[in-house]
């Protein structure tokens, strides 16, 4: 058995950001970890009976209840007196977290369980074929928010999931990206060192859904951060404690790498709206590398 706890042989698409992030998370968490995972790409491509990629105890129940299942596991471990030595991770995709699983997640956060929740954000329901979710970006072309004569794609910006999690008054919230793999692992280890509920959201490109070449997974993820469209931040006990500062690139550099945004390249007005979203993020989190330091 190879050293990783997320073994090769899964059936994710070539260049999948989510399989990469899943390995980074579980290898950082280590073997003393139990994972409860919602239905979604990750679960489907890593646990096709009789095979599993997982080298840790893993349970998939339904599409929206991993936060509650994990609460049950954590409560059982507390009852058995093992809660301190075993990590419990609840994880799901963007839809499984921000839409159908939001209620169970909110309950878990509010009850204060000692659980790390990881949301793998590939920004649409990819397992069912790229349908729009609450975390699908503005103007993104999906099969249920398609472009057309009357449409430039998804009409709404991403639901502010990290802020929603943070509003529960939990000790740690972080966003991360596969473009910065060590940063993911640092944040996982940091989160697991903190008692109580933690929320982590990882930006994971999906070559199929975002329509980009399979070898651009890391490059595309990096551009999302460098344009300010995907701020990498950390909240500790509700306070914005850290952020990855950037020298902002125009959003167009990010948009042009992906087919889901191709329709915007000939539409400067829409690009301006997307740029506005990025600028708001930059202002809100103070992402711009301050002139004083460089």
């Amino acid at each position: 058995m190879s050293k990783t706890l997320f073994n090769s042989g899964h059936t994710a698409c070539a260049g999948c950001g989510q399989s990469l992030a899943a390995r980074l998370v579980i290898d950082a968490a280590g073997p003393n970890t139990i994972v409860a995972n919602n239905t979604g790409c990750l679960e489907v491509f890593s646990t096709k009976y009789p095979e599993t990629s997982w080298g840790v105890p893993f349970i998939h129940s339904l599409f929206e209840n991993c936060a509650a299942v994990a609460s049950g596991v954590e409560s059982a471990l507390k009852y058995l007196g093992k809660a301190d030595s075993i990590n419990v991770i609840a994880q799901a995709g963007d839809g499984g977290t921000a839409d159908i699983g939001l209620q169970a997640l909110s309950g878990m956060l509010e009850r204060g369980h000692n659980i790390l929740y990881v949301c793998y954000d590939n920004e649409a329901y990819m397992n069912t074929g790229i349908q729009r979710s609450g975390l699908t970006p503005f103007d993104s072309n999906t099969t249920t928010s398609p472009i057309g004569v009357k449409s430039t794609g998804n009409i709404r910006p991403k639901k502010p999931m990290p802020e929603i999690a943070n509003a529960h008054g939990i000790p740690y919230v972080a966003t991360a990206s596969v473009a910065f793999p060590q940063d993911i692992q640092r944040k996982v280890k940091k989160a697991l060192s903190i008692k109580g509920p933690k929320y982590m959201q990882i930006h994971v490109p999906c070559p199929l859904g975002w329509r980009h070449e399979t070898n651009l997974t890391i490059a595309v993820a990096k551009l999302a951060v460098e344009t300010g469209l995907y701020p990498l931040i950390e909240y500790e006990n509700g306070i914005l404690a850290a952020k990855r500062q950037i020298t902002p690139k125009p959003v167009e550099e990010y948009l042009k790498t992906q087919g889901r945004f191709k329709h915007l390249l000939k539409n400067p007005d829409e690009i301006k709206k997307v740029q506005e979203i990025a600028d708001n993020n930059i202002k809100k989190y103070g992402l711009k590398v301050s002139e004083a330091t460089n």
Binding site: N7, S8, T52, S53
Partner: peptide, 14 residues
């Protein structure tokens, strides 16, 4: 129930 042995995905050469 149907369960899988850890790391058994390695049987599936991709």
């Amino acid at each position: 129930p149907l369960t899988c042995k850890p790391g058994s995905s390695r049987n599936n050469k991709t």
